[in-house]
Amino acid sequence: MCDTCGCGDPEIVPVEIHDKILAGNDRTAAHNREHFRESAVVAVNLMGSPGSGKTAVLEATARRLAGGQRLPPQRGCRVGGPGLGALAGDLATEHDADRLRAAGITAKSITTGSACHLDAEMVHRGLHDFPWRELDYLFIENVGNLVCPAVYYLGQAVNVVALSVTEGEDKPLKYPVMFRKADLVLLTKTDLLPHLPDVRIETIADALARVMPRPAYFPLSARTGEGMERWLEWLEHLRVLQGSIEASALQT
């Protein structure tokens, strides 16, 4: 009530909030993150344009690991390398999940309808009826899009962005939000470089250093295998790192 004059009229009050609009999403993401940490699952949010080679990178990863170049098994009961799983965000189809399953990855589609990104709740629902606790790595293959997915934290340990050399050298400068969030950029489809005389890796690297404070990238070809060793080492390092973080968290 207006208490200046006691007239009984309603009063307009400013209420200070100063909170993130997506605080609800962040809470669900923190919940997902807690699940992943408890079960020692390394969650990787894989983003990139449509056709940047996200699915191909995962297929090649599975092929490598099935082909004898395995990471040392860390889970007590598993023999023969780490367990790979994927939640594939897709607007309308099951194509990516089908491809991933054919490559030997435990995969499930999250069909987003018209949504241009995954959010933490979609990932949380995606974990239901999915044997994610048995995995060492859960790849969250986001919807192909260089804008929207960067806005939503899902509970992942890291963000990886696939940028194919055919997309143009200036993409990092055009989409700084996405690349700022990246922990690693995979410069994919490098087998096509001989056909792209105007594209130079150095130029892409320079662009990345203007949008990523800690630029981390390397060339990779899912077709020829270039860069795959380095990618697997990076993933293994991540698992060891997450393991040591969990261990130190337990000690304190």
Binding site: P10, E11, I12, V13, P14, V15, E16, I17, H18, D19, K20, I21, L22, V151, R180, P213
Partner: peptide, 16 residues
């Protein structure tokens, strides 16, 4: 990044 990544609700003016 000192600032520039906010998506914040600061204030609501409401009639009570």
């Amino acid at each position: 990044l000192a600032e520039g990544d906010e998506i914040m609700l600061d204030r609501i003016e409401m009639e009570v």
